[in-house]
Amino acid sequence: MDVFMKGLSKAKEGVVAAAEKTKQGVAEAAGKTKEGVLYVGSKTKEGVVHGVATVAEKTKEQVTNVGGAVVTGVTAVAQKTVEGAGSIAAATGFVKKDQLGKNEEGAPQEGILEDMPVDPDNEAYEMPSEEGYQDYEPEA
């Protein structure tokens, strides 16, 4: 019985440690998101679009440190934060509304985080759909 109880105690310690790591990862992701939003706020009209992409990228980098179902929630929060940063930029006159959601080359930025393969159960990952990809044929 002692062996059984000791095993359960060790398992509990492992769960607590994993929860603490997840909590730490979420806190880091939130900190990076805040950094990115402050970065966007300090940019001029020309830099705002690039700044919004930076927020998304920093958040995406930190999301990889967070495991399990938390990833889905962090990704949703990050996307809403990026959308909010863009709205703030438009409201303050840093950028025109028609410039939001495009990178410096004018290509749409939507789907940055949505296409990231995420499995809350950590069982399997699927690649994003290939609808947006084109076949590449090298020139002879």
Rank of each mutant, 00 (worst) to 15 (best):
M1A: 00
V3L: 10
F4A: 02
M5G: 06
M5E: 01
M5Y: 02
K6I: 02
K6C: 02
G7N: 13
L8S: 00
S9G: 11
S9L: 05
S9D: 12
K10H: 05
K10R: 14
K12A: 01
K12N: 04
K12Y: 12
K12C: 08
K12F: 10
E13S: 14
E13N: 10
G14H: 09
V15D: 01
A17E: 10
A19R: 10
E20R: 14
K21T: 07
T22A: 01
K23S: 10
K23T: 07
Q24F: 09
G25I: 09
G25F: 06
G25P: 11
V26N: 00
V26P: 00
A27R: 13
E28C: 11
E28I: 10
A29M: 11
A29P: 00
A29I: 14
A29N: 08
A30L: 14
A30H: 04
A30N: 02
A30E: 00
G31W: 05
G31D: 14
G31S: 15
G31M: 11
T33N: 00
V37P: 00
L38D: 05
Y39K: 11
V40C: 06
G41V: 08
S42W: 12
S42H: 05
K43Y: 12
T44E: 00
T44I: 10
T44Y: 14
K45E: 00
K45R: 02
K45G: 04
E46W: 04
E46C: 06
G47L: 14
G47F: 15
V48R: 13
V48M: 08
V48S: 02
V48N: 01
V48E: 00
H50R: 12
G51A: 15
G51I: 15
G51F: 10
V52L: 00
T54M: 10
T54K: 08
T54H: 01
V55E: 01
V55C: 09
A56M: 14
E57C: 12
E57Q: 04
E57F: 12
T59L: 05
T59H: 00
T59M: 05
K60S: 02
K60D: 00
E61D: 15
Q62R: 10
Q62F: 11
Q62K: 15
V63I: 13
T64E: 08
T64L: 13
N65K: 08
V66T: 05
V66Q: 01
V66P: 00
G68N: 00
G68D: 11
A69K: 12
A69S: 10
V70S: 10
V70F: 05
V71F: 11
T72R: 09
G73N: 13
G73M: 06
G73L: 14
V74G: 01
T75G: 08
T75A: 05
A76V: 10
A76K: 15
V77Y: 09
V77R: 02
A78T: 11
A78N: 01
A78Y: 10
Q79T: 10
K80H: 06
K80S: 06
T81L: 09
V82W: 15
E83T: 13
G84D: 10
G84W: 08
A85S: 03
A85K: 02
G86I: 01
G86C: 09
S87Q: 04
A89S: 07
A91K: 05
A91D: 02
G93S: 05
F94S: 01
D98C: 05
D98R: 09
Q99C: 09
Q99P: 05
Q99I: 06
L100I: 04
G101Y: 00
N103K: 03
N103R: 08
E104Q: 13
E105S: 09
E105Y: 10
G106Y: 10
G106W: 11
G106I: 06
A107G: 04
A107D: 14
A107K: 03
Q109G: 01
E110D: 12
L113G: 15
E114K: 14
E114G: 03
D115I: 09
M116K: 08
P117W: 05
V118I: 09
V118H: 07
D119N: 04
P120L: 11
P120V: 05
P120T: 13
P120W: 05
D121I: 13
D121C: 09
D121M: 14
N122K: 04
N122G: 09
E123H: 14
E123S: 11
Y125F: 15
Y125E: 08
P128S: 14
P128H: 02
S129N: 07
E130S: 14
G132I: 14
Q134V: 07
D135N: 12
Y136P: 03
E137I: 06
E139P: 13
A140C: 15
A140P: 12
A140G: 05
